[in-house]
Design a protein around this nucleic acid. Structure first.
Lengths: 221, 221
DNA sequence: CGTTGTGAACTCATTCACAGCT
DNA sequence: AGCTGTGAATGAGTTCACAACG
């Protein structure tokens, strides 16, 4: 039932998709003052070239008007569609430590269409407690509960040594994508999408850049 | 001849540096069983091609032995040197919320040579409290305290609306690099290095990949 | 043998520059 | 005039394939 509305002319690269997230964030956050947005204004806001912005947006279809710009309303809708966040995504979170709680409190998720629908932890002292309105369930319940909750995504904020096992349980329960914060390389079936955010590596990247005055980099994951 | 220790033949790309972090993590974590490591074994562990590993490591100098492999000891030292984490980096953390606390507890930082030397928060109820062995100081004290603490890096785990102001204070206090977790595009002097980790964007990337069975991606930031 | 290091080919991504529309 | 869309040029990054070496 994915219908069919938006046809993609060409595949978006991973990097392009990241930039679209950035464009979305700033355009959606702008006051709907005049309605028209130019590639230059977006470019300045996120720190890329205007040609880059046009190239990225052109990949979403013809939604700009020459001599005028882009309609911010349409633009937001088009980017959402291209990123696949024009519908709700149901996700469970495993590992209710500080990081897990930080993510729960981060309401940016819900605003972008992501709904956390279940919480799990292996620590018996946490199971049964209430966190941000959810009752923490035991990690052993993942197999049955995740499918019952109809969750498609899993967020993994558990220690490194249990990440592989938990991720396998999530996959077995039908999760199709995992956002992993444990500093390990998970081995999962090809069909399951995986995005790993390794906080220590990001700090190393920063140190690297400071040491060698290397790249300028404005952001990215 | 090349006389000296580690001169870089060519510049490392940002992407290459990220992969080096991954190599480092797995090689350092391996039991020093035989001493010799092959590009293939590293490649399998982190999910890239063996040619890629060789190309990356060759950029660090000649540290492999044909027909044998790389000495894991030397390899770890060389990668650390290339990434600039062969010495201690002093960092302060601003924003002692859940995310900030999660980072403090994450001992992977200290293990990699990063030392948090100060904590700041704007919330008066947090100032003066002890967190992970540090006394939280007011954010207003940043200008004087950061230089006194000789911190070179700043970790920003504050709400989006204060991130720009706090980052400017950090820069004024002499910080040379900022690891930013606020979902905003910071505008800083070119000389200050910036790495932004936007958690919501990572979730969007995951949704994007699940939606379009697009890339395989193993990780990155 | 097995494994590295690397020229060369190739793929992917970005920038340039301008035609084409408003 | 202003601004988009895009072919062409450029650049960056990755894979191929094999010579060189222990």
């Amino acid at each position: 039932m994915d219908g069919q509305p938006i046809e993609r002319g060409q595949r978006l690269s991973r990097a392009a998709a990241q930039r679209l997230s950035l464009y979305l964030r700033c355009v959606a956050g702008w006051p709907t003052d005049g309605e028209k947005v130019s590639s230059r204004s977006i470019a300045d806001a996120v720190g890329v070239s205007d040609a880059q912005v046009r190239r990225d947006l052109a990949a979403l279809g013809h939604l700009g008007q020459r001599g005028v710009g882009y309609d911010s309303q349409d633009l937001v809708a088009a980017i959402r569609g291209a990123l696949g966040i024009d519908r709700e995504w149901r996700a469970v979170l495993v590992g209710v430590g500080n990081l897990g709680r930080a993510l729960l409190k981060y309401h940016g998720f819900r605003a972008q269409g992501f709904a956390i629908v279940g919480l799990f932890d292996s620590d018996p002292s946490k199971v049964g407690t209430e966190v941000e309105g959810f009752t923490v369930e035991p990690v052993a319940a993942v197999p049955e509960r995740v499918s019952a909750l109809r969750a498609e995504l899993g967020v993994l904020t558990v220690p490194a040594d249990t990440a592989q096992a938990v991720s396998e349980a999530l996959v077995a329960a039908g999760v199709r994508g995992i956002l992993n914060f444990a500093p390990v390389v998970l081995k999962l079936p090809r069909a399951v999408r995986l995005v790993t955010v390794d906080l220590a590596i990001q700090l190393e990247q920063l140190a690297f850049q400071v040491r060698h005055g290397d790249a300028r980099t404005a952001d990215d994951d």
